[in-house]
Design a binder for these strands. Structure first.
Lengths: 187, 187
DNA sequence: GTTTACCTACCAAACGTTAGGTAGGATATA
DNA sequence: TATATCCTACCTAACGTTTGGTAGGTAAAC
């Protein structure tokens, strides 16, 4: 289970952090979830800050891959955009979890700098993907694409946060529908 | 400083929780901010859960008063709605803080039930005020008001969260402008 | 003389982290 | 082939610190 343990730690830490945040992530519970002892985590990661940074980095890397696959599979840019809310829906489907980086965004004041950088990278990945799609679909002019992309990202994050607080995934769907009806998202 | 101390604890706890969340709120730092000893807080609040519930309750009560004042001062319902984003802007102006209940919404899994109830009440207050204003301004039909109100609340929460993570209040303003341009918020 | 508003002095549990050790596999030397 | 050396992947046990919370005291106000 050599390299496998490192991956298992990364995966378990992500799940915990998506439910309890950086502050709520602790080595004993994490180790128990993996099936090892807390001290053994230090064989793979030098500190909690490094662990969290690795988790956040892997998180946006996975998201980038997922978004690219979504764009590739959709018949056109507009169709890909229409499926964007599904990416955020999955966290809620996964035991009412929150986007890792939404949680960590709330915790910025207590985050080590290396973690903060990865959290920002996640937002950048999403905004860049959205902006590209908005332009390709001809929904907004290139010079207004990034602003609209940020608005969509922020609104979707807020919808996920609100739905999670009520543990009601149908509320997320309703909010997304409202965004579409109001014209924020392409219908 | 009899009843004054209780108020001072409430106010300081709110400030701390808006920056560090429920988990990041601790009795020693809180006491230091008030100028008393940690054990003395127990004279005013029986437990951390009760303290946090009192803070969250006071938070939505203050918000309700503030929103009512905003509605009363504005010339009409549409004008009041237009000023809604200002309420959330103030947290960012106050040392880049987050809405107390947005932070606690992220922490739901670790929140005592009495705190959770007050966090939900905050959302209810906002949604009810927005829905009433949307109907009064003739922006949406009464049966669609609550859905739109929730969408506005969620989107504004997300904008505040994103702006805070970048410590950039102008980003909040830009996001609000984008919501207006897209048609989510009344221009 | 009881209540109010605080204090000092603790406690047990949980935190991130470190020290030191062990079992097993790979590699190198004799 | 046998043995010495090193690395990997974990372990137990403890470190100092911080956490929410408790017990009991003091001094003033009513």
């Amino acid at each position: 289970m050599s390299t496998n343990s490192k991956e298992a730690i990364l995966a378990a830490a992500r799940q915990i952090a998506q439910a309890h945040g950086y502050g709520g992530l602790n080595f004993r519970d994490l180790a128990a979830a993996v099936g090892i002892k807390a001290a053994s985590i230090y064989h793979h990661f030098p500190s909690k800050a490094d662990l969290a940074a690795a988790v956040a980095k892997r998180y946006w890397e996975d998201t980038a891959v997922e978004l690219e696959a979504m764009a590739a599979q959709a018949p056109n840019a507009a169709a890909a955009l229409r499926r964007y809310p599904q990416a955020f829906r999955r966290a809620l489907e996964n035991d009412n979890r929150l986007c890792l980086c939404s949680f960590m965004s709330a915790e910025v004041d207590d985050l080590p700098d290396i973690v903060k950088a990865e959290v920002r990278a996640f937002a950048d990945v999403n905004v860049a993907w959205l902006a590209k799609g908005l332009v390709a679909a001809g929904i907004v002019a290139p010079d207004k694409a990034e602003a609209r992309a940020r608005a969509i990202f922020a609104a979707i994050s807020g919808a996920q946060l609100m739905a999670r607080s009520r543990a009601d995934i149908s509320l997320y769907d309703t909010l997304v529908d409202s965004y579409r009806a109001a014209g924020l998202l392409p219908a």
